[in-house]
Every structure is written in structure tokens, then in C-alpha cells.
Design a protein around this nucleic acid. Sequence first.
DNA 1: TGTACATCAGTGAACGCGCGTTCACTGATGTAC
DNA 2: TGTACATCAGTGAACGCGCGTTCACTGATGTAC
Lengths: 198, 198
Amino acid sequence: MAAKHGRGAETTRRILDAALALYAREGHAGFTVHAVAAESGASLGSLYHHFKSIDGVAAELYAECMGHLLDELASALTRSRTARGGVVAFVRAYLDFAERHPDEARFIHGAPHGGFITSHAARIAEVKAPRMEKIVAWVRAHVAAGEIADIPAPLFEMLVVGPVAELTRRRLAGAPDLDLAEAARVLPERIWSSVRKA
Amino acid sequence: MAAKHGRGAETTRRILDAALALYAREGHAGFTVHAVAAESGASLGSLYHHFKSIDGVAAELYAECMGHLLDELASALTRSRTARGGVVAFVRAYLDFAERHPDEARFIHGAPHGGFITSHAARIAEVKAPRMEKIVAWVRAHVAAGEIADIPAPLFEMLVVGPVAELTRRRLAGAPDLDLAEAARVLPERIWSSVRKA
DNA sequence: TGTACATCAGTGAACGCGCGTTCACTGATGTAC
DNA sequence: TGTACATCAGTGAACGCGCGTTCACTGATGTAC
């Protein structure tokens, strides 16, 4: 899937782009094989030639978007020397991603309730694992240095990702009273307060 | 909907209970009118007599679960005198709810991606609004007293609800490496740190 | 360079299935006098 | 209390529709000699 070279690469690309645009425009209910094929200009048969099923399209698109987000988060982190700088940059990068790529953010936060995430778990893990490893290594180093509180890694993740993920979800669900600029001003320092040592 | 008295109250109750159990067991994909009717023992016609559509069932169930959760959260808050005690109790109440009522928590966090939440927004607001009002009033009072940071109410909500909502979502999505007991020990104080004044 | 063959890419009509919803109906409960 | 009527509760076969998927096929590109 997602052939990097070869003749069908362009078609594959068009299908994934169309799927993302369609999800953004029509939501979960409009995300059907027929609609994705029509939107992309490919035929049904062509879509099934490159992807094994509609869930395959969704899984590949999810892996792509998640990879994109995690790349930005990991690089925000590793660019920073101090723990505080890293956490602040991480939170900003998340909010920035939601603003610059709202369609991808919407797909990441909304799509998993179709069952593809369990049926294509291997493909998704393949994309997530190496990025998560980088992030976890950075956090561990700063825990060891005594800058970040020594709490279980998953709980650290909840504290940092939770507020921004919730914010993103609500915005995408249509709550308009949430100002991203203000969030970017307030949240990073607040979240840092929740994970700093002592 | 959800007649409080009258002859059909019992049937209505059975349908909602069946819908919740079915969602917990089969997930989004199994949540169909036919399946809900069969699970509840009611006929299709009877279901349509009491609810106008399958979305109507989902919306009523959502309103019920959300009301239940917000009741527990609001009472945790208002039982507490100090800001710190309130926030800590709030977080514990959320985690407690997820543990004691996993089916309701799963429905609250998973179901909204069906479109019923916009089509039945009025009914849902009717349940949420008075509870949210209590919560907001409590927070405002403690902001005025200088105990809680003076940040916009929605951002306060993200900081407090975000981590526990994210945790709940991941657990329900099948991540087993998340220990609720440990979360209840670590998160409340950490979250308090993120919203306290100075 | 030309010919023969194999593989890859793409087509779109057709399929069966299960979904949400309707409807003509029967039975049970409540109301009037 | 008995009778007539109205409303509410419940039944389940039947409907049309759109979904995901298949398949026999054509055309384009790559490979061998």
C-alpha cells in the first residue's frame, strides 16, 4: 500500500487526497467507497486494485496523517534543549498542526471509531512506533535529569496531549468559542506546570 | 421522549438499556435499529412508536449518560470547599465514573461521531446546560477568590477534563497499559498544578 | 529495432446484503356518561 | 356498573436504497531475445 514508486503511485495519491477532502466535507457518513472513488476520479476497480478495501484506504490515510503529526511533535521536542522549552514547543506544535492542517486533524481525531484501527493495527504501529520511540527517549532523558516529574510515561502523555487533543476535538465538532491563538498563549505554560518536577 | 410516567415508560427503559449494552458489546457497527429492537425484546414498530428514529434512541441515551456523568462531577465539585479539594475530587469522580460505568463512558466518548449530536442538539443542551451552569459557577467563585488562575473557562475545562477524557478514550479503545488506580493517585494533583493561581 | 509475452493499472456493470423506515393492523388501557 | 369510544402501545412483514465488494474484461507499460 502507498507505493513509493511505480506507475500507480499517482492514482494512490489522488485517492488518499480525495478521501481526506471528502471526510472533511461530508464527515463520517459521506465516507463511502463509491464517494471516494468518484471524488478521486478513479474507478471502483482501480481503488480496489490499490487498496484491499475501504478500511484499507482509511487505515493508510490515518497512518499518513498520524505520521505527519508525530513528525512535527517529535521535531519540536528534539529541537529543544530544556525540558520546559520542549514541552512548550510540543504543545504549540500540536495546536499549530490543528490550525494548519485542519482536515488531517479532523481525520485523526474523528475516524478511529470505524473499526479499521484494530483491523490494520500492524500498519499503523509501523508508522507510530519509530516516532513514539524518539519522543519517549527525549522524555526519559529529561526525567533522568530531574527536570520532569517521575510519573509513568502514559500518564505524562495524557497530561500533555489530553488538553490539546480535547480542544482540537471540540473545535472540530463545531464549538466555535475556542480561540486557538489564546490557547497557544495560555496552555503551553499551564501544561508545563503539570509535568515539571516538584 | 423518555417518558417519566405513563404506560410505555418500561418499554422505553428497556430499549435504552438494550442500546447501551449492545453498543458496549458490538461497538458502533452493531448499533442498528434491528439489533437494538431485538436486544430489548421490543418490536421495530414499538421502538419507532417511542423514538422517532435510531438517532433519537442514540441522542436520548447520550443525554442520559452525559447527565449522569455531569451530576457526579458537579456534586464532587460542590461538596468541596477549597479550590484544590474541588479540582482533585472532580478528577477522581471522572475516573471513578469511567471505572464504575464503563459502558456509559464508552458511549459518551465513542458515540458522538454519528451525526445525532447535531441533529438533536437541543435535547442534549437541555440536559447539559443546567449542570454545566453549576460547574461554571463554582469555578468562577474560586477564580474570584484568587485560588484558581484567571484563564478563559473553556481552557480551564480543557486542562481539567482533557487528560482524563483522553485516558478514558484510550482505555476504551483497548489500550490495557493504563492503570486507573495509578492515574487516580497521580493525575488529580498534577492537574491541580496546571490550574492553580501562580 | 521488432516481436511476443507477462505483468500492472484501470474500467464499470452487477451482486447480495442489511440498513432505516413505513404502514395497516391488533390489543390494551383510559375516559364519558 | 356497563357500554361506547378514543387514545396509546405494540406487532412484524415489506419497502427501497445505498453500501462494500467482485469480476470479466481492456488497455498500458515493462521485459526477453
